[in-house]
Amino acid sequence: MKDQILNLFLPILIIMYGTDGKVFRVSKMECRSLDPSFTYFETCKVTRMENGRSFLYINEVILYKDPINHITLNLGAFKTANNRRIQFLNETLDFCVLGQQLLANKFFKFLMTPLMRFSNVNGTCPIQQDIIVNGFSVDENTIKEIPIPNGDYMFQLRTSLLKKWRTVVRVYATRVDKYSE
C-alpha cells in the first residue's frame, strides 16, 4: 500500500519541484559500527571539491568470515530544520532480493543504483568480502532525481547482517539549485 501511494505521488512531486539543476551539497558523513566485533569502518570520509561537488569513500571491514546471506537494509531520509529531524522516508528491504525490490521501490532505486556503480557490491548474496565504496560522486549526474525541495537533509542507511543491526551510515546534505561556481 505504501509503495502504491509513493508511486502515485512521486510523479506529482517531480512535476511540482522539478529535477533540473537540483543537486546535493554534502557537508559530512558518519559511519558507525553497532557491533565492532563483527564489523568496523576503516574509511569513512567525504572529499569536497572547490566547486561544491563531493566524493564519498567507505571501507567497511567485515570480521565475520562465513558467508552472510541474511542482509537487511533500512533507508531513512530526514528533513532537518531548527534542531529537529522530520522523517519522511523509512523503507526496509531484503538485500538478497534487491534486484526485484530495487525496481519496485523508487527511493532505493534513486540512491542504490548509482551507489552500486562505485562499490564492490553487486546485489547478490552471500557476501563474503569487505564493503568498499570508492569515490561515489555526488554531482549533477547522481541522485538528482530525488523529488524533494531545497533544504537540509540527513540520509541514513542501517544494515542488519544475520538478523542483527550492525552498522549505521549517515550522510548530511543540503539540496540546492546549483553548485557554487
Rank of each mutant, 00 (worst) to 15 (best):
A77K: 05
T80H: 14
L73C: 14
N82S: 11
Y57L: 04
C31A: 15
N83R: 07
R85M: 09
T72P: 04
L75K: 06
N51G: 03
E30I: 14
M29L: 14
T43K: 13
G76E: 15
C31S: 13
S37N: 08
E30P: 10
K22C: 04
Y40I: 01
M49T: 11
E50P: 13
H70F: 05
T80Y: 12
E50A: 12
L34S: 04
L34E: 08
L73I: 10
S33T: 15
S27C: 07
G76M: 15
Y40F: 12
V61K: 15
F55W: 03
V61A: 05
L73E: 00
S54H: 02
K65T: 02
K22R: 10
Y64C: 05
R32I: 15
D20L: 05
T39D: 00
K79G: 13
G52A: 04
Y64Q: 10
P67Q: 02
S37M: 03
L56W: 06
F38R: 04
E60H: 10
G76A: 09
R85C: 12
Y57I: 03
C44G: 06
G52R: 10
V23Q: 00
Y57E: 04
V23G: 00
Y57A: 04
T72H: 02
R53Y: 05
M29D: 04
V46I: 11
V46L: 08
F41S: 06
L75G: 15
R84P: 02
R48I: 13
R48L: 13
F24P: 06
D35R: 11
